[in-house]
Each structure stands twice: as structure tokens, then as C-alpha cells.
Design a binder for these strands. Structure first.
Lengths: 336, 336
DNA sequence: CTGAAAGCGCTTACAG
DNA sequence: CTGAAAGCGCTTACAG
């Protein structure tokens, strides 16, 4: 049906081996021959069968993607758009191994990758306790974790600079004379939450403010838990005048709780979000938040993975991406 | 490295052919043999190399996806989550052919599909005028278009019932005594806009209302154009008391224009959106809108495609998915 | 019911 | 510089 290497060899009057060599950039082939072959390749729109190629041990040029959340995680969308660019630039296609599910113990993700001849894997949405990555690490498949600090064998990771981000947010609030600053936590088990919490403590410490446990409300990034967490903070006799949240969604929930308590943002309480999702600029007051450069993270994750794939000796990378504080209308000076 | 069919054949003490046969469900193999083979397959976690499989003409179990928008289209996210389920149920993996770009004339998407041995393709985000689908149609690769009425060869499509949706929205407004109903158009060239416009005219006609060209504002689904389009409508001496929009984003833009003109929703003007994106329930007033069942569309698109792949004789499908009017706070009775 | 052999489309030593 | 041949891991007639 579709043209194969033999067709173009025949058309060009050379052997299959020669066509293969020009396709693979061997320098030993004569310039004239090379040009002739290339002409036919182009004319016949020949594109080598990737299955045959990977079968003989050549590169498959596919990267697998592995998510807890499914492809539809709102957040992942932006990561993807960054990945796309880098994928294209480096010649990869992206394969989503839909067959996999964690709960199926009979099934091995690693085996699936191998059966698909995937060259590398991006992993997103997992926490350490979710599972053991042993099999993946031992398989030696180049792997890049997003937002999880795995650095072992041929696996590295990339994440925002979560600690510095919150530290800076705290600094901003302190500049507005806040001293009573609450923290609306994300999922406790999560890598990013831990680092954001570290940033919180560090920011406080730098300003000489004593850490108060009751100023930290539990959460899980959701709007609902943001609402509930904020209610707890509001119930305090000596309640905070500001709060930094581990996600925009929970910040939005917090703002609702504040409003429902008859208070207002930012007059009574200042709130800072995290992520800068689209909605952050839509809510009223528009949310001041930490912008994560997810697009960059997506692009970089592919670039790092590519290097890991190409260079077998490369030490696993560890990339920390700067964030940006986007100041909008949800923070104001602390009430005296 | 990874175990192959020869390893399990050896372990089970049978020939490679026999292993292959049990793997492929041949009924000619002895029950005992079959069980033995299966035991080793499981024990050794054997998973056949998909490259070798597709090379011999067996199914590759991959579906390609083809988008104008990139994977990160906010809308596509929900479609994907529906696709995921159906992909899993039917044993496919999803491959995103990142290498492709429309502007590259040297490059053929069809050839890329062929070189990847993709069994079917889902196409999303294109309009008729964007390009010619000739090559794709002629290739006879089973194809499913989302939101574009291509039905030819082995290509079919799926879309929401756009016409009925707007017709019903109009009916709802008429029930609120509106007679002056505007239409905020989406991209003129788009399939969905055309059908929504048809629904608009039909809804009007059913209520015996004369169509007025000046009640139709141009747009492109964006917030900005929603804002501008609404401004045009507001400038009319005899302005509409309500407007149905071709997207939630443009409805949000329209609400801003109304507010900026010193009017309010729904007291002065009622507005209806389209899509029911997450933000629709966040804006104030919460947006009454047409909910598209994108998840169902995603799931169904894979199911239909699977049938098309499996049954070579199947006529190309055409699926129209019902919508739902989600009533929130952006519509009220027409002012007398 | 089972297995030996050919072949899918490529690449890569190897010989010339 | 070029090509014949072996082989990647599988499946499928075919013979037994």
C-alpha cells in the first residue's frame, strides 16, 4: 500500500541498504547518490515505517506520558502546550498509555512502555506514597517527574521553586504591614505542599515573626477545603489578617468563606493564591497569586528528557523553575 | 533485555508459533497447552512487542489525534477525559502526532499516520476552509471529526445538537417574555456557528418573531469579541432585551460590556452562554448556558472510531449529541 | 493439535 | 562507496 524503502530503492536504482544509509545520515555515501535518493524520498513522500525501525533497535521517537489525573487535569493543559513545542523541535511523538491503571496489579506500566518501545517517560500527578517507582527506576527507562523529587538511576525531576515563591509572597504581605499571616495548606502528602510550607516558615522567620500552629489550616487544593480551612482561621479569636493559599481554587474558596462571614477582601483580610489559573483574574477581587510557569516546565521537561535519552551517561537532572508574584486586587494593607 | 516470545516459548516448552496462537486467541490450541502458556505469559509478565506486531500487519492498537489547537485547548480537556475511558475499554493507546504542522507542505499527516501504523484518527478544531481533507479521505484511514460535518469514505463525525440547543434557548427566553433577542455569533466559518445560527432563526420563526439582521453581532467565541459585539447591540436605538451567545467566554465579555454601559444582567438584559465551562458558574451573575456533553462526545468518538476500524464495511457514522440548558442567574423576565 | 519457515520493513555489520 | 544477507519480534499459511 504505502511506499516502502524497497520502492524508493527501486525507483532510485540503488539498493535498500543505500537508501537506509542516506536516511540515517551515513557519511560514507556518495554525494550524487545521496541527492538522487533524497529526490525520490521526497517525491514519493517516503516516510520509514516506525515499527520496523524500532524493531531493529533504532529509536522509536516516542515519549510516553503517565498521569494520575488523566490527560484532563486542568493544570496539565498548560504543561502540555509547553511540551508540544519541545516535542516537535526534538522530533518526538507523544503517546498516552491509556491502558494503564494503577489498581491493576497484573499490569505493569514498565512492561507497557517496553512493549511500545517508548524512549522516555514523563510522570505527573504522583506523590511518593502513591506507589513505588522501583520497577520504573530499575527498568532504566529515562524518566522525568514533574513536581516530585525523584532523582535516582535515570530518573530526574522538574518543579517550580515552591519554597522561594511562598517566601516572597510572605515578604509582600509583610511589606503591607501584615504580621498575622495564615497558611492554607495543600495536600499534606504532596511534594509541593511541603516546600510551600517550608517557604512559609522561612518567610515568617526572616521577618522575625513567631510561627503559630493554629494559623495553618489543612487543605487539599480544592475550593471546598479552601472554604472550610478559611472558616477555621476565621473562628480564631486572634484571627490572621492575611492568608497565603496553596492553590487558586482554595484561595477562591477562602474568599467565599470570608465573604460569607460578612468580611471583605482585601479590606479585612488579604489573600494570595497559587498557580494563576485563568479564573484568578476573573474573580472579584481579582486574585493576587503566584504564577507558575507551567508552559516552561512542560517544554523543559521534554528537553531534559531528550538529553537523558540521548546521553546514557548523563546524571539525572533536577530543575527548579522560578515563579512570579502576580499582584492584583486581593491584598491590601493590614488593618491597624 | 525484556522477555520476548521466544523466552516464554522456551520456558513453556512449546514453539513460538504456539505461544503466538494462544496470545491471539486461536481456538485450535489444546486446552492444557494453552493454560501452560498463559501461566508463563503471566509469570514472566510477557507483553508482545507492539512494533513487531504492527509490522506483520496485526493491529497496532493506537489511535492518532489531530488538532489545530494543540492538546491544550481548554475545551479539549473534557473531550479527552471521555476519550480516555473508551480508549481503555477498547484497548487503544493514544498517540499525539506532534511532528505535524499544517504550514509545512513537505510534510504529510497521512504519511505520518501510516508510518506510525495508526489505526484511526480523531480530528478536532478544524473548519472546512482550513484545509483540504482529501489526502486523509483518500488514504482510507478511519477518521472521526469532532464538530465538523465530514462524511465521506471512511470518515464520519460527531457534534452537539447545536441547532436544537439554540432553538431551545430562544424558547426559554420567549417564555420570559423576551421578543427582542440578539445573537452573538461565533466564528462565521465554523460549522457549529452555522448550526447555532440556524437554531436562532428557527426559534425566532417558531415564535413568529421577525428576524432582524442588526440583532446579530459578529464574533469569534472570544471574550474580547463578545465585549465588542455586545457594544454594537447596545448602541442600537431599539436594543435587544436579551442575547444568546455562541460561547461562555463571549457571554462573559458581553456581560462586561453591559455592566460597563451602566446596565445590569439580568434586570436590563438577559444573557445565555454556550458550553458551560467551569467559569460559567463562577461569574456573577452565574451564567445560564447551554451545556455541551463534551465528555460523552469524547467517549463516543472513540467508540464510533473503533467500530469503523473493526468493520471495514461500516458506513461512516454521524452522531448528534443532545445538549442541556443549565438555568442559572443571568436571565430574567423581559422589561415591559 | 503443533511447529518450521517465510515474511513484515527496516538497519547494520561485513565483504567487495 | 555500494549491496547481499542476517536479524529485530512477531504472525500466519502450510505441512504433518
Amino acid at each position: 500500500m504505502a511506499t516502502n524503502i524497497r520502492d524508493v530503492a527501486k525507483a532510485a536504482g540503488v539498493s535498500v541498504a543505500t537508501v537506509s544509509k542516506v536516511l540515517n545520515g551515513y557519511t560514507t555515501v556518495n554525494q550524487k547518490t545521496k541527492e538522487k535518493v533524497l529526490r525520490f524520498v521526497k517525491e514519493m513522500q517516503f516516510q520509514p515505517n516506525s515499527a520496523a525501525r524500532s524493531l531493529v533497535g533504532r529509536r522509536s521517537m516516542t515519549i510516553g506520558i503517565f498521569l494520575t489525573t488523566g490527560l484532563s487535569h486542568p493544570f496539565f493543559t498548560e504543561i502540555l502546550s509547553g511540551m508540544e513545542e519541545a516535542l516537535k523541535e526534538n522530533g518526538y511523538d507523544l503517546i498516552y498509555l491509556a491502558q494503564f491503571s494503577w489498581d491493576n496489579k497484573e499490569y505493569s506500566f514498565v512492561r507497557h512502555c517496553q512493549s511500545r518501545n517508548v524512549e522516555g517517560v514523563v510522570v505527573f500527578g504522583f506523590q511518593h506514597e502513591d506507589m513505588s517507582f522501583e520497577e520504573l527506576i530499575e527498568s532504566n527507562i529515562p524518566t522525568l517527574f514533574i513536581d516530585l523529587d525523584v532523582k535516582e538511576g535515570r530518573a530526574g525531576y522538574i518543579s517550580s521553586d515552591n519554597e522561594e515563591a511562598v517566601e516572597r509572597a510572605i515578604g509582600y504581605l509583610i511589606g503591607l504591614n501584615h504580621r498575622k499571616i495564615g497558611f492554607l495548606s495543600g495536600d499534606k502528602a504532596s511534594y509541593v505542599t511541603r516546600h510551600r510550607f517550608d517557604g512559609y516558615r522561612k518567610g515568617l522567620a526572616e521577618a522575625g515573626i513567631t510561627y503559630r500552629e493554629d494559623y495553618v489550616a489543612p487543605g487539599d487544593f480544592s475550593r471546598e477545603m479552601g472554604y472550610q480551612g478559611m472558616q477555621k482561621l476565621l473562628a480564631l479569636s486572634d484571627r490572621p489578617t492575611s492568608v497565603v493559599c496553596c492553590s487558586d481554587m482554595s484561595a477562591i474558596g477562602a474568599m467565599e468563606a470570608i465573604r460569607d462571614a460578612g468580611l471583605s477582601v482585601p479590606e479585612d483580610i488579604s489573600v494570595i493564591g497559587f498557580d494563576d489559573i485563568e479564573m484568578a483574574s476573573f474573580v472579584r477581587p481579582a486574585l493576587t497569586t503566584v504564577r507558575q510557569n507551567m508552559k516552561h516546565i512542560g517544554r523543559k521537561s521534554i528537553e531534559l528528557l531528550d538529553r537523558l535519552i540521548v546521553d546514557k551517561e548523563l546524571a539525572p537532572p533536577e530543575a527548579i523553575v522560578p515563579t512570579e508574584l502576580v499582584v492584583r486586587d486581593s491584598c491590601g494593607p493590614a488593618k491597624a
